[in-house]
Amino acid sequence: MTPAIDTRALRKDYGRRTAVRDMNLTVETGCVYGLIGPNGAGKTTTLRMLLDIIRPTSGEVRVLGRAPRAGGPKLRRRIGYVPGELRLEGRATGRDLLRHYAEISGPVEPGAAEELAERLDLDLARQVRTLSKGNKQKLGLVQAFLHRPELLVLDEPTSGLDPLVQREFLQLVREAREAGQTVLLSSHVLSEIQQAADRVAVLSEGDVVAEGSVSELRLTAIRHLRGRVDAESAPGLRSSLLALPALREVEVAEDGRFSGVLDSEPNALLKVLAGYRVQDIVIEEPDLEESVLALYGQEDDRG
């Protein structure tokens, strides 16, 4: 099956500054793919090149099997897009604006706009210019999902939304995947990526520094360790734990309570603890946020 998105050595330069650096990215059809990274990592620039809003300096890109530049309006009608900086103004009501979008994008099921608006708690009778930032963002989401496009490109889509609406948005993303749609989701809200994405690319300074499933990326993350041994073992345990190169921030109390941060799989740690009377131990599941921060740190060290 042809990938929904495929880039080869995609690059974008602005004078001497490189925003996207020879990016190779493949998004399979029917999956939710997350792009994460800090501001300036190249996420928005990448999305804009996919949609032919800006042109790459070099490299190749295919979206739904077509080059964006050659695909024209026919290709764009197969895509739903929420930009990172959504600007909606005017005296038209939300309902009128969505009616206009429906005429441009193609067939829309009767009542689709009203159903989406109700799920996102959006009043379509209000003029767009009177809407808050959060309600404008809801309107942008409705227009993107409205015609059930083959591909959804969502750049920081939950900016300004309250937690309940964010949860409903994530449900919409899951339903889109179940319907066979592809979703490319750019976000700095890592919990969204953890809950929604099948695969993730981590961007830093225009480079993909890691790519894989959420579970694979979580394996690279640090783990928080805490536990307790009998008090008599505490002095010896401290020296044993300090000898482990993958364990840092080691603390051992007189009563035998201990904690630390583990940078690798726990095999070596468990071998050490096997020599003590362990009363309690918890090794917390790694968090994607810490994984990402660790990857950035590795990238910085290489630079």
Rank of each mutant, 00 (worst) to 15 (best):
L152I: 00
S132N: 12
A117K: 08
L122R: 04
R126I: 02
S132G: 12
H147Q: 07
V128H: 10
G111P: 05
F145I: 10
E118Y: 09
A117P: 07
S105P: 04
T158C: 00
V142Y: 01
L120M: 11
K133H: 14
P163E: 11
S159K: 03
A117Y: 03
Q166R: 15
R167M: 08
L151M: 01
L152T: 00
P110T: 13
L151A: 03
L146E: 11
A117N: 08
P149D: 06
R119E: 10
R129I: 11
K136Y: 07
R167N: 09
L139T: 00
A125Q: 15
A125G: 15
Q143K: 14
Q166W: 07
K136F: 04
L161T: 09
E109S: 12
D155Y: 04
K136A: 05
D155A: 10
A113N: 05
V165W: 10
L131G: 02
A112N: 11
E114R: 05
D123G: 02
E109P: 01
D162E: 07
R129S: 13
A144Q: 06
R167F: 06
L116A: 06
G160Y: 00
K133I: 09
L146S: 11
R119H: 09
L116Q: 08
G106P: 10
Q127G: 11
N135E: 05
L122V: 06
L161P: 04
F145K: 04
L131P: 00
S132R: 14
A112D: 10
L146C: 12
R148A: 13
Q166Y: 05
T158I: 00
Q137T: 01
L161W: 08
L161S: 01
P149N: 06
L161A: 02
P163I: 02
A112W: 13
V128M: 11
E109H: 10
K133Q: 13
T130M: 13
T158Q: 00
L151H: 04
L141H: 01
D121C: 10
P157F: 06
V108A: 07
F145N: 03
E109R: 14
L161G: 01
R167W: 05
R126N: 04
Q127R: 15
A144E: 08
E118N: 15
G106Y: 10
D155P: 09
E115S: 12
F169S: 03
L152Q: 00
K136R: 15
L116K: 05
L152R: 00
T130N: 15
Q166K: 14
E114Q: 12
F145A: 03
Q127V: 12
E114T: 07
Q143L: 07
V142H: 00
L141C: 03
A117F: 04
E114N: 08
E168Y: 07
F169Q: 05
E156T: 05
V108M: 03
L151Y: 08
E109G: 01
Q127K: 15
Q137G: 04
E114I: 07
A144Y: 10
D162C: 03
K133W: 12
N135T: 05
G140A: 09
L116S: 05
V108C: 06
G134D: 07
L139F: 10
E114Y: 06
L120N: 09
E114W: 07
R119L: 08
E150P: 01
A125C: 14
F169A: 02
E168I: 00
R119N: 09
S159I: 02
S132D: 13
K133Y: 13
A144P: 04
V153C: 02
D123L: 01
E150N: 07
P110M: 12
G106D: 12
A117L: 08
